[in-house]
């Protein structure tokens, strides 16, 4: 994609084509326990993370960054990207969290995992705000890309990335107020702390890419 010639509409189309596929994680046949719910959620997160890397590579400007900067951006934003995806899937389903097409959780099901009900309530509240503000699909795509491109706490210097930012401005300028709100609402601290605590208490084993990303968060915190 030649960013110097791309129109905002083409840019949004590129974001649409970069969208990851729906990930399936079958719901256990028995009622959830703390361990089985955390197992389902972490398995899902790990699969989604793999697709998130593929998504990020299709965001214009991203692969032109150094590998170091690509890692730093993904390290910073992965939980927020997972959260906004969950909120978008849940936007038309008040009171429910659509983690996956085959993993739909009611708010009260969060009672079986210590500390997660508070996070479910926060996610449901944020999703309600998205619903009230009538978040459009195009806006969701732009906000998610913005979360990635703005995520590093360090400045990432790249002309192509600046151009990507420029391309995001026109689609977002139609409703700058609500869009700023969307960015403001998506915070991952509580979710990250909860997952870390579940891992430290050995409620659920954490493997693979999810473990790498979680460890990176721990090291950054230190």
């Amino acid at each position: 994609i030649l960013l110097s010639t791309v129109s905002p509409e083409q840019f949004v189309l590129t974001l649409l084509e970069a969208e990851p596929p729906n990930v399936l994680v079958s719901r256990p046949s028995k009622p959830f326990t703390e361990a089985s719910m955390m197992m389902s959620l972490t398995k899902l997160a790990d699969k989604e993370l793999v697709h998130m890397i593929g998504w990020a590579k299709k965001i214009p400007g991203f692969v032109d960054l150094s590998l170091y900067d690509q890692v730093r951006l993904l390290e910073s934003c992965w939980m927020e990207v997972l959260m906004i995806g969950l909120m978008w899937r849940s936007i038309d389903h008040p009171g429910k969290l659509i983690f996956a097409p085959d993993l739909v959780l009611d708010r009260d099901e969060g009672k079986c995992v210590e500390g997660i009900l508070e996070i479910f309530d926060m996610l449901l509240a944020m999703t309600s705000r998205f619903r009230e503000l009538k978040l459009q699909h195009k806006e969701y795509l732009c906000v998610k890309a913005m979360i990635l491109l703005n995520s590093s706490e360090y400045a990432v210097a790249s002309d192509r990335l600046s151009r990507s930012h420029d391309c995001l401005v026109p689609p977002c300028a139609v409703r700058p107020g609500p869009l700023t709100c969307f960015l403001f609402f998506v915070h991952s601290n509580k979710g990250m702390e909860h997952l870390l605590s579940m891992k430290c208490k050995n409620v659920v084993p954490v493997y693979d890419l999810l473990l790498e990303m979680l460890n990176a968060h721990t090291l950054r915190g230190q």
Binding site: K57, L67, Y68
Partner: peptide
């Protein structure tokens, strides 16, 4: 630890494969 050491899978995914190659 360096980014490379702590992100072996992430590095591999960024450098080599598409998700369909990996999953």
């Amino acid at each position: 630890s360096s980014l490379t050491e702590r992100h072996k899978i992430l590095h591999r995914l960024l450098q080599e494969g598409s998700p369909s190659d990996i999953t």
